[in-house]
């Protein structure tokens, strides 16, 4: 997607709208879903950096200063960044004005998404761990091995976490994976690696889906028993690494969770 990124640089001006009482929705309505996550994550990173700078430096006079103390979180989705704020600490109109000024100033429009953590996520492809690998390969008229090779070769990127805690939507797949969802819904386990619409989703809870379930990772994407319970974060990049069921059985998740905690410390600090 690097080519497209450059095509659209600088990012177009998004549309800002107040949503409910405590959110500003910033949408890149002119961008296609292929390109929009780059713009969303670029704005997400630039805004987080601006808030962080305000927290340390003398921030009075900055357009964002009135919002900085009231902001709750930034939520990236495919084509929009939503900024949640406490309406008890800033008027909605003032929050909107602060973000409009930041967006209009435009420095962020030449930035790229701030890189997140880099991952190699182990997954067992095919068999019971990926019952839809064979049907997908048949549809794509290639061998299951070739589908695995191409899926695992892609450097994918977390565009958003959605549906359930820790469930990660990934872009960066080659066009051949732009397959429609299936009509019938079937149950899949937590950790399922599912594919459709040129996206991968790593799931954190069992659910019914019409996507192709081609692999399963032994890692939990969300583990409430851990102090930092979310494995992946928006803007993280990853490759899937095919492993055997025996390797999955023996996998030690600890280093992965250490990396997740380290990433959050960097973000917070």
């Amino acid at each position: 997607m690097a080519g497209k990124e450059q095509e659209r640089h600088p990012w177009p001006q998004p549309v800002l709208r107040l949503a409910g009482e405590g959110a500003v929705h910033i949408a890149f309505e002119s961008l296609s879903p292929d390109v929009a996550p780059d713009a969303v994550l670029a704005l997400d990173g630039a805004l987080a950096a601006a808030f962080a700078a305000l927290a340390t430096a003398e921030g009075s006079g900055h357009a964002l200063a009135p919002l900085a103390a009231a902001v709750i979180e930034q939520v990236p989705t495919i084509r929009a960044l939503t900024v949640f704020f406490d309406p008890g600490r800033i008027k909605a109109e003032a929050a909107l004005a602060a973000l409009e000024a930041f967006v209009a100033a435009g420095a962020w429009r030449r930035t790229r998404p701030r890189p997140g953590a880099e991952w190699e996520i182990p997954a067992v492809y095919g068999g019971d761990a990926g019952p839809d690998l064979a049907p997908l390969a048949e549809m794509l008229r290639m061998s299951p091995e070739e589908v695995v090779r191409r899926h695992a070769a892609a450097r994918q990127r977390v565009t958003m976490l959605g549906f359930a805690p820790g469930s990660a939507y990934l872009d960066g797949l080659p066009a051949l994976f732009d397959v429609p969802r299936r009509r019938e819904l079937r149950p899949i386990p937590a950790g399922a690696v599912i594919v459709a619409l040129r996206q991968t989703v790593l799931t954190s809870v069992p659910m019914p889906t019409g996507w192709y379930h081609i692999a399963t990772t032994p890692l939990r994407l969300f583990d409430p028993a851990r102090r930092w319970p979310f494995l992946l974060a928006p803007a993280d990049r990853l490759r899937l690494v095919p492993i055997t069921p025996e390797e999955a059985e023996a996998l030690d998740p600890k280093p992965f969770w250490q990396q997740a905690a380290a990433r959050e410390q960097r973000r917070a600090g």
């Binding site: 979180e73 939520v75 949640f84 974060a233």
Partner: peptide
């Protein structure tokens, strides 16, 4: 626990 929708919660 507000503040974790970024992570899907």
């Amino acid at each position: 626990r507000p503040g974790w929708q970024r992570y899907g919660l």
